[in-house]
Design a protein around this nucleic acid. Sequence first.
DNA 1: AACCAGATCTAATACGTATTAGAGGAGGAC
DNA 2: GTCCTCCTCTAATACGTATTAGATCTGGTT
Lengths: 375, 375
Amino acid sequence: MPPPQSRRKATQVDIARRAGVSQATVSLVISGGAVSDQIAESTRQAVLAAAAELGYSVNVAARSLKGGRNRLLGLYTFEPVFPTDQRDFYYPFLLAVEEETARQGYDLLLFSSVNASADRSIYASGANRLKLADGCVLLGRNVRREELAALMREDFPFVFIGRREVDEGELSYVAVDYVTATSAMVAELSRLGHERILYLRAMEDTEPTRDREEGYRRGLDEAGIPFDESLVQGLADPAGLSVERLQHWIGSLGVTAVLIEPTEDDRLVQALAVMDDTARVRFPDDCSVALLGDPPSWTSDLRDWTRFSLPRTQMAREAVRMLIDLLGEVSPAPRQLSIPCSFVPGDSIGPVPSGGAQPDQASRPDQASRRRREP
Amino acid sequence: MPPPQSRRKATQVDIARRAGVSQATVSLVISGGAVSDQIAESTRQAVLAAAAELGYSVNVAARSLKGGRNRLLGLYTFEPVFPTDQRDFYYPFLLAVEEETARQGYDLLLFSSVNASADRSIYASGANRLKLADGCVLLGRNVRREELAALMREDFPFVFIGRREVDEGELSYVAVDYVTATSAMVAELSRLGHERILYLRAMEDTEPTRDREEGYRRGLDEAGIPFDESLVQGLADPAGLSVERLQHWIGSLGVTAVLIEPTEDDRLVQALAVMDDTARVRFPDDCSVALLGDPPSWTSDLRDWTRFSLPRTQMAREAVRMLIDLLGEVSPAPRQLSIPCSFVPGDSIGPVPSGGAQPDQASRPDQASRRRREP
DNA sequence: AACCAGATCTAATACGTATTAGAGGAGGAC
DNA sequence: GTCCTCCTCTAATACGTATTAGATCTGGTT
């Protein structure tokens, strides 16, 4: 057995010495795929043998230093990704980003200033930590616009998962086509005879919400249903969706169908499920319900809501691919990609309930009596 | 608007030029924590300002090539972490590693050659990719010993989550004390009167399994129960745990309690649950059952098995802390830390069934008749 | 005036690799 | 013999940083 070598790892210089060639030759043999066929076979064998004997392995740092790239992609989330209550929502993105990154031969750098909420900033400590990576995939609902703008100013390559707008100009994103999906949902309801369709939107004015609202209006328009401002309701808190409120809408507004924008946690959908289970409001018997997105916590015993479903895996993959594409260009222009949602028929929409089609007072006592029906 | 800068990232040389100092000074200001107080405050400010203006961030590869530190910790898993069927098992580790890493002011580098199973090697393509990180946390059941050995040979700092042994010598790990936990479980069963306790172990000869077996023997020993080789059964495939097999053990071996090593997916525990639900074998009425670890997929409607529970969060945190400690030392000695499991009483063990205590033939026809009881 | 002692900064170098221009030799054509 | 081509290899350099020995300056002491 040879005496334990010095702790130092073998380098190409060591191999070169042992094989009686130059370091450059070693480099050509080891990693020069295309150029290495101009090396004589005997030399090649000698080098490979020496490399094997010395247990050589390439020094990644040196290689990427030379190349200017680290082969690292960053994943930055504007919201904590790991907490349990949002885990089902973000997990598919994570999974797919990680997979595709690996498939492309990159490693994934996970940025997370999890705890100190104030620290959750790209520009913590003055230095831009993101820049450790060659480029970055961004994720999260509550974006800090200034940070995005700063990234753009510095020409740092990044791709957002989800459509985002910034005053500074265009940025690259892979989004989901909420507009088309929502308007298709309205069309579907219209086909079933619904005309009083309530849109229950999130309070914050983010792009996903804006897009849904646009889809809602477009859908009404194409179905020839007039837009009624009172049928767009904001919901600040999932707890705000009470049986009473829903019954009020059904009763006094004549609503027969509700489009709901699901939140990232599962309370909203849970609330709906409870109403249905306890038969205080039944879907679709009393009212049709469709979700404008996936219910976040999907377990097999959950109700099969009518909804459209985000192709999260595909979105994440496309984002990674787009990012790597951008990295390859000298002066890349921002790109936008929009992916269609898939429609899930489910069982929570149906024809207009017989007594509830007319938006007049007649239906109100009916609903009021039903309210007492609980045990 | 300034003309679009060249795509090149700013370097310390750029900063130096702009601030009118040397590159060395920049390096001292940027990363020389201890030595940087010999720099005049005015110079320091000028450098920092220039760095901010240029959007500088350090080049990891260069720093690591030079031998410096990156404040990056790697997380390497020997098995795919993200696949859904193992997600509940590994998720807590991931979560805690990520949290603690962030808390310590490090970033997390996720290594994963997810798909190509053959590629799932630290030494893929000859390059030791891990080395971009200052140190690494390793995770996973089916370790490649050669790779561990290679890491040790190269003095790369790492900490394994879980006890691991390698011929080459000691390595650092944070483990869970399966021996004590298992022997305590045996003691508990013995206290309830059980003497014929079956140990259903995994087929592979990994450390966790070995430790459980040792705990099993020690527990028997301390309870004064003789060891019976036929009461240790290997289970290659979760599907191998059939009702018939279990009834055979109860009937002809006189088994009254079973210790089960849960697999990383949830099929084994599912199988048990089904037996119990369909009343073909009821726990603990027909036989006591205790799990030597957590059932992997824990949902609220799952049965509350008697078991012990791994402190996964704590393990992961300790691993990160240990790793950072190791990084601080010049020539660190391997460290081992063992953390106790917590006992979860559950409801799947009970006293010895009245008719099944004697391991003689009398019980066999009784069991055989029960076997027909299904609808 | 000569010397010294900080204080502050810089020049030079090493790290391991990839790349490129070109060196050196062999062989053939004229 | 001269020129040319092809083949194989090497010298030299750049990549961006950390580190260290020493340079330069400032102000004070003898």
